[in-house]
């Protein structure tokens, strides 16, 4: 499978809220099929190079719009998108 789109090399995202809540990729089950890179509408799934394999997906939490598309697309169930649950009042400011 060839990759349709290779976003710019993923920025090293500083630790913080954006990355804390970014989708988590369980690299040990990822087969590097590239589907998450292809489906992400935000270009948030980049390609990182790892020592022991060709590449691994790397998600930029700041770009990610939490659409769940990568989680839905991943055939290995390797991606999980965390979310918090809040009530409406607290969100209206």
């Amino acid at each position: 499978m060839s990759l349709c789109r290779i976003p710019a090399a993923p920025t090293a995202v500083p630790p913080g809220d954006a990355q804390e809540r970014a989708p988590r990729v369980e690299l040990s089950v990822c087969t590097a099929c590239g589907l998450c890179v292809m489906v992400c509408p935000a270009g948030a799934v980049g390609i990182a190079f790892a020592a022991d394999r060709a590449w691994v997906p790397s998600i930029d939490g700041a770009r990610c719009i939490r659409c769940f598309d990568c989680e839905t697309a991943c055939p290995e169930g390797a991606i999980e998108v965390p979310f918090e649950i809040v009530e409406q009042e607290r969100t209206q400011s």
């Binding site: 769940f68 989680e71 918090e84 809040v86």
Partner: peptide
């Protein structure tokens, strides 16, 4: 399963009970 949960969340959103936002679910 995760798939059923994803479908259920979409259904709850269609029913106007929740809103799925960036990184959170708002209980309406």
């Amino acid at each position: 399963s995760r798939e059923v949960v994803a479908r259920t969340l979409r259904q709850l959103e269609r029913d106007g009970l929740i809103r799925v936002e960036r990184g959170r679910i708002v209980l309406l």
